[in-house]
Simulated assay, not measured.
Amino acid sequence: MRSGSIATCAAFAAALMAAWPGLSSAQPADEFPFELEMTLEAPAKPGSKRIPSIEIGEKGEARLELWCKSGAGQFSVAGNTVVFVPGALEDRGCPPDRAQADDALVAALTAATGWTRQGDYVTFSGGQTLRFRLNTN
């Protein structure tokens, strides 16, 4: 391929990415899932269909929807190191078992020190391993 053809192909690819907004902002599969929502790989609790999910904003701000409680927090990421700082949780009159499970999940996220991503799965590691599936639909 001649150098003029390579430049033409590169210009075409750049124009194509600019023309399709979702295409240029796609995250590589090894980046932290900023601006995405993910669901914990766990079964629902008896008497409930809810499974915890986290929506992470552009700057690491997080919205948590747990088995019963909801709240906010903040993720800070440097390489494969992660720090999660929880905010206040809203107690929705939870049964004791779900409230305890929510508190334990937040404690496990707070104890996490590392993260990895493989495709649509994000794993937090530290005291306990937590695996989340990215909601890609």
Rank of each mutant, 00 (worst) to 15 (best):
L40K: 11
T136V: 15
E37C: 15
A44P: 06
A11E: 06
V106Q: 01
P33L: 11
Y121M: 09
E55F: 09
A14M: 13
F75E: 04
M38Y: 15
E90Q: 09
A42L: 02
T81R: 14
N135L: 09
D97F: 01
A104I: 02
L36R: 14
P46N: 04
L66Y: 15
T110A: 09
R133K: 14
A72N: 10
A42S: 14
L36N: 09
A62S: 14
S24K: 14
G119Q: 11
W20D: 15
G4F: 11
A26S: 09
G47V: 00
R131D: 01
E37H: 13
T110V: 03
E90Y: 07
A11F: 12
V82G: 11
Y121S: 12
S5H: 06
P95E: 06
S76N: 10
D97S: 07
A107S: 07
T136H: 12
Y121Q: 14
A78G: 03
G57A: 12
V82I: 13
N137G: 13
A108E: 05
D103F: 01
R131W: 05
I51Q: 06
L89N: 04
G87V: 02
Q27K: 15
C68E: 03
A101R: 04
V82D: 08
Q128T: 12
T113I: 00
C68T: 04
P52T: 08
G114A: 09
K69C: 11
G71V: 05
L23N: 04
T39W: 08
L89W: 06
L36W: 10
G127F: 00
N80I: 00
L130T: 02
F132Y: 15
D91A: 14
R133Q: 13
I54D: 10
Y121A: 13
N80Q: 08
T123Q: 06
A112L: 01
I54C: 12
D97P: 02
N137F: 11
R50E: 06
A108G: 01
G60K: 05
D103Y: 02
F34C: 01
R98W: 03
R50Q: 10
P86K: 07
Q74W: 06
S125I: 00
F124E: 04
A101Y: 02
A101L: 01
T129F: 01
A7T: 11
W20I: 15
A44Q: 05
T123C: 02
S3A: 14
L130D: 02
L16R: 07
K45L: 15
G73P: 06
G60P: 07
S5M: 07
R117M: 05
G47W: 00
F32W: 11
A44F: 05
R117I: 03
D103A: 11
A13W: 13
G60N: 06
C94Q: 00
G73Q: 07
